[in-house]
């Protein structure tokens, strides 16, 4: 028996007649980076949203650490250690970068029903938040409003938020979306050391990124798995080349 942190079994989701997930089955091994790739509309983001609980599947099961979670609300899954970053940057624009991460730090505590002490002067909270900002290279941008950060910095902030929730499995929905070469490289340097200590499920269009990070690649087309294997076997797979990688690959 392998050690899977996430097992997706027969997951189905239909929007009218369109299958976003069609008996989708795959598993993520603990400590690995598993990439989901596929053409636009293959159902990658919908798969992520079902795993986090934002979209309710029509059928199938999702097991996280051996427990069936497909009926859990979003916040309960997050607390159990399953967290995500968003393809379209999703932050709290009016908060400073530090406050944004502090929010994620307090999300992992039993509750934030503390009414009196000023959270801005809460040293434990701030120190912890600062360490995560340092990890993604935003240490010197702590007091900048999140909405005023550059696009690439906001993506880094997203990663800092996710890490601050102390996750076991991180779902990365196109972490490199809209980034230039240098920023992509910087993000790779942030993500690469995470492997091992936590597990990653990566959705990404940039094949260089996928092949640089992933241990296992699963290819989706129209909500179905058409191939799954090591990056090199996927690169060699004729079906995948035809269905997706196309001429350039």
């Amino acid at each position: 028996m392998t050690d899977a942190i996430l097992e997706v079994q027969g997951l189905s989701k239909f929007f009218g007649a369109v299958a976003a997930s069609d008996s989708l089955t795959f598993q993520v091994e603990r400590g690995c980076c598993h990439a989901l790739i596929g053409p636009n509309g293959a159902g990658k983001s919908t798969a992520i949203a079902q795993i986090t609980g934002e979209v309710r599947p029509d059928g199938g099961s999702i097991r996280f650490n051996g427990r069936e979670i497909s009926r859990w609300p979003v916040h309960r899954r997050a607390r159990a250690g399953l967290n995500r970053s968003y393809q379209i940057t999703s932050i709290f624009p009016a908060f400073s970068a530090l406050d944004t991460v502090a929010l994620a730090v307090l999300a992992r505590q039993p509750h934030a029903f503390r009414f009196w002490r000023d959270a801005r002067r809460d040293e434990r909270l701030r120190r912890s938040a600062r360490s995560f900002l340092d990890r993604v290279g935003l240490g010197d941008r702590a007091d900048v409003r999140a909405g005023d950060l550059a696009h690439g910095e906001q993506r880094q902030l997203e990663v800092a938020m996710v890490l601050a929730t102390n996750p076991q499995l991180v779902l990365l929905d196109e972490p490199m979306a809209g980034m230039g070469r240098a920023e992509t490289q910087q993000m790779l340097d942030i993500l690469r050391p995470l492997k091992g200590s936590l597990s990653l499920l990566l959705v990404e269009h940039d094949m260089d990124v996928v092949f640089a990070l992933a241990d296992v690649v699963t290819v989706l087309v129209k909500g179905r798995v058409i191939a799954s294997g090591t990056p090199s076997s996927i690169r060699a797979d004729a079906d995948v080349r035809r269905a997706y990688l196309g001429d350039g690959a």
């Binding site: 986090t52 979003v74 916040h75 932050i91 709290f92 908060f95 999300a107 934030a112």
Partner: peptide, 13 residues
């Protein structure tokens, strides 16, 4: 500012 994101962080808003 962003309720879905807050839930995704694990907070029952």
């Amino acid at each position: 500012q962003n309720e879905p994101r807050l839930q995704a962080l694990g907070i029952p808003t």
